[in-house]
């Protein structure tokens, strides 16, 4: 389980998180929605230690994320799909996917790592032909899929997806959504996705949390999302300009 307790984070005078509290049960898929600049990415990055929260605690299975004794072992439990893919452009696709398997505690022989990488590429619908290409030679959708393959390469217990469908056409977005859902179910992983794509939310989520103004305004099962009665959530999921969320922020 991932537990956020009263987490705050400010960048200069801009308070992004103002006491975020949220539980993500083990083995479930939580989708955090909210407008741009509301701190969704910051939330994920705080768990991974990429950004240090100003106060509050983040517990991963009871372990404080900020004070993990063995940082490498802690991070080895996670996989992350970045918004832009964040593929290493100096490495071919298979080395991107097998990055964790080619170095550090999970190091395997190169041939075995390559086999695993090709297997993971197949899992996300890519053929072995792309293994030796460089990321710049791939389309946006293919890059996203390679990023997904990299996120699941070491069979992590927890997977984060940062805007998995941003910049993709609706068909490719559907493909990625289905892949994420399948992978999370099949691996039994705990997933946290941040997005403002409502199609994604309905395809991926077990639970949904609405982040606004640095706090969770509503959280509950995706099946209850449409009848929540929460004015913030209603405005967001229906994409209305009028409502408690200012259209111009």
């Amino acid at each position: 389980m991932i537990r956020f307790e009263n987490v705050t984070k400010a960048f200069g005078s801009k308070k992004v998180l103002r006491g975020l509290t949220l539980n993500v049960p083990k083995g479930t898929s939580m989708v955090i929605i909210g407008g741009s600049g509301t701190g969704k990415s910051v939330t994920l990055k705080c768990v991974l230690g990429l950004i240090a929260p100003d106060s509050g605690t983040i517990l991963v299975d009871g372990q404080d994320a900020a004070n993990a004794a063995d940082r490498d072992a802690f991070l080895a439990r996670f996989g992350m799909l970045f918004q832009g893919g964040a593929l290493f452009d100096s490495l071919p696709v298979w080395q991107n996917v097998a990055f964790r398997l080619l170095r550090g505690a999970l190091k395997r022989p190169a041939a075995e790592a390559r086999e695993i990488a090709i297997d993971k590429l197949r899992r996300v619908g890519l053929t072995a032909d792309v293994a030796d290409l460089f990321p710049a030679e791939l389309s946006g959708g293919m890059q996203k899929r390679v990023g997904l393959a990299r996120a699941i390469a070491a069979d992590p217990e927890i997977i984060f997806f940062d805007e998995p469908t941003t910049g993709l056409d609706p068909i490719m977005a559907g493909v990625i959504n289905d892949l994420i859902r399948e992978i999370v179910t099949e691996m039994g992983a705990t997933a946290m996705t941040i997005t403002h794509d409502m199609t994604s939310v309905r395809a991926i989520a077990d639970n949904v949390a609405m982040l606004h103004d640095g706090v969770i305004k509503w959280t509950g099962p995706v099946s209850e999302m449409d009848n929540s009665g929460d004015p913030y959530l209603d405005q967001f999921i229906h994409g209305r300009a009028e409502g408690p969320i200012a259209a111009v922020r």
Partner: peptide, 9 residues
């Protein structure tokens, strides 16, 4: 990519 490096231990 640097954030990705960190997440990959």
């Amino acid at each position: 990519q640097i954030d990705a490096l960190v997440t990959l231990s």
